[in-house]
């Protein structure tokens, strides 16, 4: 099999592994397209925002603050502040991915979901196939996000009226997927305690309306737990 075919196969495998992400991406991108047009953006402007910024929560904040008339410097500052959590994603994947001159643009696809998928799946992907795998998973997720935004901007109201449960049922693919990614990490009492604290903290922050800061704050709570709690060595949870 040629090098080119091997890379295409790896990309297809990455795209296939990323299919569960669509359960979350489709309804959220549809919602973003709808919200953006309601905030006064045209469909193609919403598509450009999804193409260039490509970070769900911060995009909602961006269009919401612009629609509310907030100063643009503040809009940019808060958009970047929400996305600061991304700085810890790259270093974790750097140990798993080969060197390539394409990373500066491919890392654009490093969302929360793609990071979680890559950190979980890359260790079981052959080292020679990892570049292609990441390419397939990231590009598929990015394309779906942009297409979903356009559909949401053009026909969002009709889609949600026709399938009222779309926004309720499909997003469940995300917690199910992340559960399958988190479960293997429950290897001992220390990790189990840190992961449980993190999940509960994230749920509490999300329920209290602090969804935008829930991920970094909850992870910080879990790290605090990980480094402060001590259990006897060698005892499984």
């Amino acid at each position: 099999m040629s090098h080119r075919h091997a890379r295409i196969n790896a990309a297809l495998r990455g795209a296939r592994d990323g299919i569960p992400l669509l359960g979350g991406y489709v309804p959220v991108s549809l919602s973003f397209g709808l919200v953006a047009t309601q905030a006064g953006f045209s469909p193609w402007e919403a598509a450009v925002i999804s193409t260039l910024i490509y970070a769900g929560a911060s995009q909602f904040l961006f269009v919401g603050m612009v629609a509310a008339g907030a100063p643009l410097w503040l809009v940019v500052a808060l958009t970047l502040l929400i996305n600061v959590r991304h700085v810890v994603y790259g270093p974790n994947l750097a140990t798993l991915l080969p060197r390539s001159r394409h990373w500066p643009w491919l890392m654009h696809g490093l969302t929360d979901q793609v990071f979680a998928l890559a950190l979980t799946r890359l260790p079981v992907v052959d080292e020679r196939e990892r570049f292609g795998w990441f390419l397939g998973a990231a590009l598929m997720a990015w394309a779906v996000w942009i297409i979903g935004t356009v559909v949401g901007a053009v026909a969002g109201e009709a889609v949600t009226a026709y399938w009222p449960l779309l926004g309720d049922i499909m997003p469940f693919a995300l917690p199910a997927l992340f559960l399958t990614m988190t479960a293997p990490r429950f290897t001992d009492r220390r990790w189990s305690a840190a992961l449980t604290v993190t999940v509960l903290a994230a749920m509490a922050l999300s329920l209290s309306g602090a969804t935008n800061v829930a991920i970094p704050l909850a992870a910080a709570c879990g790290a605090l737990c990980f480094y402060t709690l001590r259990f006897p060595a060698g005892r499984c949870a």
Binding site: Y89, P171, T182, A214, A218, A219, A223, F226
Partner: peptide, 23 residues
């Protein structure tokens, strides 16, 4: 080369995304 705290933070970030997604 990956600092220990960064290796810990990776899985915890996934758990945090899980917590947000569960709601």
């Amino acid at each position: 080369a990956l600092p220990g705290w960064l290796a810990v933070l990776g899985p915890l970030m996934i758990a945090a995304v899980l917590g947000v997604a569960i709601v």
